[in-house]
Amino acid sequence: MVLLLEAINALREFLDTGGQVLLVIAVITFAMWLLILERFMFFFGNYRKYKGEVLNRWHARNERNSWNAEQIRQAMISRAGIKLNSNLPYINVMVALCPLLGLLGTVTGMIEVFDVMAITGSGSARSMASGVSKATIPTMAGMVGALSGVFASTFLQRRAKREVELLEDKLLLDH
């Protein structure tokens, strides 16, 4: 219990040194990773069952060579593609938003530095330290959040594209 309280206090101190923007970056990054984990759970869990159902429905058809059958095949592939790409645009938006929020943190931190300089009338490093940390920590956090999301997002997009192509191959017209 003591260790948990120490961790919470350390996190609180870190968020205080980074300013309000750091909290927003943390919330966005957390939401992004929730969506990423949801996509991973879908790919490695629910999609296999869904793919099996689609293949069973297709192979249960008596007729698979007509124009109507091709339209049904394309609709099945399209629905699977929609399911596979669900939430990926939101993840990409959050990935793009993280560095922009980091830049906002940089600007607000530098404004604080200039305020301190205007109030004290000097460029004392001690008086500017708080503003400098509020300028650099959100930038770092925004970049870390964006980079972690870029790798996951790229993996998920490639996986979705590959799964759609594999499904297309399995739903051949003459089989």
Rank of each mutant, 00 (worst) to 15 (best):
V27S: 14
R12P: 08
F155P: 08
V21S: 10
D169P: 11
F40V: 12
M140F: 06
E165V: 09
F44Q: 03
L22T: 15
S122H: 06
G19C: 11
Q20V: 06
M41H: 15
R61L: 09
Y90N: 08
K134E: 05
M32N: 04
N62F: 12
G81M: 09
N62S: 13
M128H: 01
E63F: 11
M94R: 02
N85C: 10
L11E: 02
T154N: 08
Y90K: 14
R12G: 03
G105R: 00
L22C: 15
L11C: 12
G145Y: 00
S122Y: 09
T139D: 01
E163N: 08
W33R: 07
R162V: 12
R12A: 13
L173C: 05
V95G: 00
V21F: 11
W33P: 02
A75P: 05
L37N: 10
A146V: 01
V2L: 11
A96S: 12
L166V: 13
V93Q: 05
L35Y: 10
V144Y: 06
G109Q: 01
G19I: 04
V2I: 10
V2A: 15
V54N: 04
Q74W: 06
G109T: 03
G102L: 02
E70A: 05
L172W: 10
V27R: 06
G18D: 09
S148M: 12
S130F: 10
L15S: 07
V164K: 05
S127E: 12
M41S: 10
G131I: 02
G109M: 11
M94Q: 04
R162W: 11
M76Y: 06
L3R: 10
E70K: 11
S127I: 07
S78F: 04
E163K: 01
N62I: 13
M117A: 07
L15W: 13
A125N: 08
F14W: 11
R39Y: 05
D115H: 06
F14N: 03
A60C: 06
R57H: 07
V116I: 12
L166Y: 04
